[in-house]
Design a protein around this nucleic acid. Structure first.
Lengths: 246, 246
DNA sequence: TTGAGAGGTTGATCCATATCAACCTTACGA
DNA sequence: TCGTAAGGTTGATATGGATCAACCTCTCAA
């Protein structure tokens, strides 16, 4: 396999202590006195152009990444060409945890727009986590959250219908945008219908039809990638009892 | 929600240092000199009867569990009654990692047969992990593996057909039995067709038909819960190019 | 300003799996 | 030993989403 795309480790060193994302990221819950020590962790920031990989399946694992700006998808490719998007990732979220288990990344991480990540040496992270209780705990929480959200994706993929899946997806995005200080009801999708479909276990046409259906029902308004949520209560109900809207 | 079933913390204290599961479990990769220190971690063993919960969604999290004997499923229940099995777990595997993120377990863990677990105080684990590098790393590997395997379940649920799903499931079981010193080709299923279906995102009838199809094709032989794999190569091919057998 | 390609929508048809139903098998307690 | 319930299989039919196809709408570069 070809190695990762040209790395551009700009030395725009910025500190965790001054980062406005700290409450979404690893530094959360760490005592002020310790936060300065994190700055040695984030040695480098790296810029990734839209559509470029941050890492690829099989690349050797040495670092995890915190998204500083932009967004990513991660996906798995099967030999026969099938793709499964396993996640969409926004600022403050941590990428690369899948690499710890075997020492090789187990998926591809691709930028959905021009993005910037903090490179966190995994070796240094383990070292610091041994010294700073709060960092250790927060790191465990981050991993555990990924497990929990993967389980809810399994629920979605294993037992929800197309419309329910899309509703759950939109509500999840909405909630994550809110946590980042953006509007809960109005946002731009950074991914294509095909990528959404892959993530939700649906074909792009089905995703498109579900969008149209929601629009017709007055639940959302859609113009290409611009989404406005008009009735989040009914979207929520749609997930709980599919029957009520179908 | 009702609290967990009657706890029976038998004081059959056994040690990690003498446990034959150590190469599948948390002690893996830890220096001999440190292994004795793990024994303080596993304060208690607990017996769980078939069909009884080890923990339930919403129970407060204080411990993770290593399966000593027996097996478990974990599942999520939706308000409307839908169930999603999120995993089947065998000896040496760790349960409860989902609880770290919020301090509450996010799923139910139910014994599939009379089972026994080592109760690992999470507080003590963090403490020891700060002291023992090998334990810290192995714990991270365990969490990361769960993430990786959840991603491959998303792949399975999102882009595989019924027969492919069952083939992948059987091969996965086979491989895990092998790692535990059992036959790769002959084993007993501890779960019902309905539970398999829930796990694989299929109805029990579809699971049953897939079993029958595999048997007719000479890939496996099935008698109720007893499975014998007759042609694992073709099972593997089935996953890669569904076309070749369908 | 036009043309081409990528992304998106919508309609018609097909098919894999769900659903409904009958029946079979096994385990187990009365 | 029989009766019952839970689990499993198989058949007939229904249906949600996939597939195939046409067309629409942007964007962007020539």
């Amino acid at each position: 396999m070809k190695a990762t795309a040209p790395v551009t480790p700009t030395v725009l060193k910025k500190s965790c202590s001054q980062c406005n994302l700290f409450e979404l990221c690893l530094p959360l819950g760490i005592k002020d006195s310790d936060i300065l020590r994190l700055d040695e962790l984030v040695a480098v920031q790296r810029k990734i152009k839209r559509q470029q990989p941050l890492y690829r399946t099989g690349n050797p694992f040495e670092a995890i990444y915190a998204i500083r700006t932009g967004s990513f998808k991660s996906d798995i490719l099967l030999e026969d060409g099938r793709e499964q998007v396993t996640g969409f990732h926004m600022t403050g979220e941590i990428l690369g945890l899948d690499g710890i288990s075997t020492g090789l990344y187990s998926c591809n991480a691709i930028a959905l727009e021009d993005s910037e990540v903090c490179v966190i040496s995994y070796m240094k992270l383990e070292e610091l986590a041994r010294a700073i209780e709060g960092l250790q705990h927060q790191f465990h929480k981050v991993m555990s959250s990924e497990i929990v959200s993967d389980h809810s994706m399994m629920m979605l993929l294993g037992s929800m219908h197309a419309n329910e899946r899309l509703a759950a997806f939109l509500l999840n995005l909405s909630q994550r945008f809110t946590a980042r200080g953006f509007s809960p009801t109005e946002f731009h999708l950074r991914m294509t219908r095909e990528e959404i479909g892959s993530y939700l276990g649906l074909k792009l046409e089905t995703v498109s039809r579900a969008f149209s259906f929601f629009q017709k029902e007055g639940l959302i308004s859609v113009q290409q990638k611009h989404i406005r949520i008009l009735d989040s209560d009914r979207l929520k109900k749609l997930i709980q009892h599919q029957a009520s809207v179908r």
